[in-house]
Design a protein around this nucleic acid. Structure first.
Lengths: 335, 335
DNA sequence: GGACCTCTCTAGAACGTTCTAGAGAACTAG
DNA sequence: CTAGTTCTCTAGAACGTTCTAGAGAGGTCC
């Protein structure tokens, strides 16, 4: 049913020139007259020629291909993919994707990409042991996105999680809050740094006595459950590990008859699509996906092309997005 | 920094055999003695040989590669990817992914895959004009996933959206509801069929007089806005185009002081992660992702391998997932 | 002892590109 | 008119595989 795909040779025969010349035209390389160029392009278009990337790469050695590992469950990874495609296109590189799914682990995803002869590996939120990543980094550049990997051979581009919570606390303090509780993220990557950011900034505001960290987790259920013990004597504000958990918090608070933000202010983290829903309207901390993806791609290309790199780690600043779940503290119950 | 990757020739030289023999061993093809086989494998492992997929495909013509187009914004596409990877692995095929992002349209995504010489194209929720898909289908098998494409050359695997709303209406009627309103999906694919499913089933239950369809859309905001006109004289139940819009509906209802499910029952569509959140606990209609992905892969492979195919379209039945947003109608205001 | 297997292996041509080296034509300069 | 330069083009090798055809070695059968 599907006849053979046209090749360079077909175009060449049809246009009455050599394959080499067609190759030159297709690559937009110098060495062909304007007239021939146009004629060849016309023929190529007419017979529906499309270059075979595999053959091209095989010959040229270079693939200009960046391998990207992402997880299908994380909407945030989708946002990063968007940025990565843009950044790669700007530098005339292409992306090959390999997904981590509930039934397909990161090892498998990476192995698939290596067979594709990509020139660098970008792993979003890597979960492999550091040693495994380091092993791969010995063969080709590896950039970890969004999670810290402590190994000199692996580049890291991540958000300053710590600073994000500084901003959240600053925002709440500026609104007059003093009783600010932090809801933890459990074993999720980033938890420790966000917790530290909260604690440090509370101290810096002289609120040592008010520091209170509740165990939690990354899911909506985690948030809903974690906030329950607070209902008897609620704080005036809560910083939550991420947006999803924050929605659970909002729901529990409202069911308990507490008004947000009138009685309690809530700050999330990630600026996920969820937070932007107008009826949730969640104040949150946005990670700078554009900066992260741009840096990640630039770093990968620098390693590929041998450009010297100053620092292994790039840490991008987060940004507070004030929305409707935070407001001035009305009547602080403890002065 | 990264020395040349070892090739077949390197393994052959090291093991003192021909490249052809190494190829035989690596492919696990007949034609090598057990002893040689083991020796070659040892050498390959020692020097870290990995087959170059591109060269392999270039020569063999076959790529055993299925191209998949998905959108990064849709979490549901992630669920489908999971199933597609599983189904492809079972048939010893591989997937290459190409994403549609806010800045990268479906045309670009498809063009990228065609360069990869995949043997078939699976497009999740295609948005390209039928003619464009048909044009591609002339060259290689194309399977549309989740959206109807009316062209004889394009295979379709989709959910029986119509039937999903039958189930939703049946469920509500069984709970004693009569005043059931449907919230539409705007211009989103699937809207017409879901609306038709609602209307037909209402008629079948003799509820012609109660049929009421409100204009809406696929987002949470759409749902929240669409339900506003109902607040004065609310129905006892609402079927909503999808889960996301349903969350908007829930929020608006609750803010207006209506209890769900005591005053109003709500049914969503998709069984997205959102619906499963325990504090939303949304009754919804689940699409059978496993069946859809299995069929899609089977169909693609059938086309590739020339197996005769009976029907162009595969329609999988949906399934009602009863959760906490539906309950018996208490006091129907109109008998 | 020859004919015919089967088993293991190898040489060498593909696959569709890119790249190197160089050929011919058409100018320009002296 | 010759030498040099530039522009356009081509032949043919390479990339790392797979595949076809066939070569040797050894066995079985009559």
């Amino acid at each position: 049913m599907t006849e053979r795909r046209p090749t360079l040779a077909d175009v060449a025969a049809e246009a009455g020139v050599s394959t080499a010349l067609v190759s030159i035209v297709m690559r937009d390389a110098p060495g062909a007259s304007a007239a021939t160029r146009q004629r060849v392009l016309e023929v190529a278009d007419r017979i529906g020629y499309r270059p075979d990337r595999r053959a091209r790469l095989l010959r040229s050695g270079r693939s200009r291909l960046l391998g990207v590992v992402f997880a299908v469950q994380h909407t945030f990874h989708g946002d990063l993919l968007t940025g990565l495609y843009d950044a790669a296109a700007r530098r005339d590189y292409e992306l090959t994707l390999s997904a981590v799914t509930p039934h397909r682990d990161e090892r498998t995803a990476i192995a698939g990409l290596l067979q594709d002869r990509c020139e660098a590996l970008l792993v979003i939120g890597p979960s492999s042991p550091t040693s495994a990543l380091a092993g791969i980094a010995a063969r080709l550049p590896v950039v970890a996105l969004g999670r810290d990997v402590r190994h000199h051979a692996v580049d890291v581009v991540r958000n300053a999680d710590c600073q994000g919570l500084h901003q959240a606390v600053d925002h709440l303090v500026a609104l007059g809050h003093r009783r600010i509780v932090h809801l933890d993220g459990g074993r999720t990557p980033g938890t420790a740094e966000r917790r530290r950011g909260y604690r440090d900034q509370m101290r810096r505001h002289g609120l040592d006595a008010e520091i209170r960290i509740l165990p939690g987790g990354p899911t909506g259920e985690d948030g809903a459950a974690a906030v329950a013990p607070l209902l008897d004597d609620p704080p005036t504000a809560i910083t939550v590990f991420n947006d999803l958990a924050a929605t659970g918090v909002l729901d529990t608070l409202r069911r308990a008859g507490l008004r947000v933000p009138d009685d309690v202010s809530v700050v999330g983290y990630d600026d996920s699509r969820l937070a932007r829903l107008t009826y949730l309207d969640l104040t949150t901390i946005a990670q700078d996906t554009t900066a992260m993806t741009t840096h990640a791609v630039e770093r990968a290309i620098a390693r590929i092309e041998g450009t010297p790199v100053l620092q292994r780690e790039v840490v991008t600043p987060p940004r507070l997005v004030p929305r409707g779940t935070t407001a001035a503290a009305t009547a602080p119950r403890r002065p």
